[in-house]
Amino acid sequence: MNIFVLMKRTFDTEEKITIVDGKVSEEGAEFIINPYDEYAIEEAIQVRDKHGGEVTVVTVGNEDAEKELRTALAMGCDKAVLINIEDDVEEQDQYTTAKVLAEYLKDKNPDLILAGNVAIDGGSGQVGPRVAELLGIPYVTTITKLDIDGNKVTVIRDVEGDEEIIETSLPLLVTAQQGLNEPRYPSLPGIMKAKKKPLEELELDDLDLEEEDVEAKTKTIEVFLPPKREAGKILEGEIADQVKELVRLLRSEAKVV
C-alpha cells in the first residue's frame, strides 16, 4: 500500500508563546510535530505493518522541519519529503500548502493519505480536505478508527462527542482525531536507523509551480493573544443575597440572561 502522511511542524502551545510584529516569535519557542499529525503518523505505520507497503511523510516548510521529519522517520516512516517553498512564496496560507501538496501527490498514486485533523497553531483544519478535493478522492475527517479490508474502508469518525460509522473505499484521505491511537516514542535504535533513510528536498520549481499558482488567498489582518483570564469572583453573605447578586451580575456584567 502506498501511504502518505501530511505533517506540519508547529510551535508547542504548552510552552510560553509571545507575539512580535504580528507573528508568533520563534525565539524561545519549542517546536514539535503537530500532535494530531502524530496520530496520523502512528496510524500510517500501523496500517503499513498490517497491510505492507511504504509510508512517506511529507511536509511543506523550511529546512528547520528536517528535525520533525527525522522524528517521523525514527518512529518508523520509510521516506521523508521536505517541500521547501520559503524562498519562493512570500504569502502562504492553507490554500498554498494544499495546492503544493496536491501537486506533489498527483502522480504518486497514493492509496491512503493521512493528516492531522487540525494543526494546533492555525487550527483551520483545511489542508487535508483541500488536498483530497484537489486530487478528486474521498475524504473523512476527525477519525478515531480505521479498518481496511481490501479496497473497502470502514471509518469511525468523531462527530462532536458522538460516533459516525462510514464505509468508503481507497484511495482515501483521512484526518486523525485524538483517540485514534497512542503515538509511539521514537526509539533510540529507530533514531539511529533514521539517519540512513531517504529525506528528499523539493522546491517549487521541482513541482512545475510558479509563485502566482500558490499565493495565499487570505490576508492576515491582526494576530493577538487571547485576553488574560481575570480572577473569578466569589460572592459572600446570606445565600438569598448571593443569588440576587449573581442574577444581577449575569444580567449586567456577563450579559447572558
Binding site: 509511539r184 516514542y185 526509539s187 533510540l188 535504535p189 539511529m192
Partner: peptide, 21 residues
C-alpha cells in the same frame, strides 16, 4: 517494557550486537 522498546537497555552495547554503539 516501554524503556526496552525505547532501546535504553542497549546504550552501551555495540551495534553489531543489537545495541546503539
Amino acid at each position: 517494557e516501554k524503556s526496552k522498546e525505547m532501546g535504553l537497555f542497549g546504550l552501551s552495547i555495540p551495534e553489531e550486537y543489537g545495541g546503539l554503539g
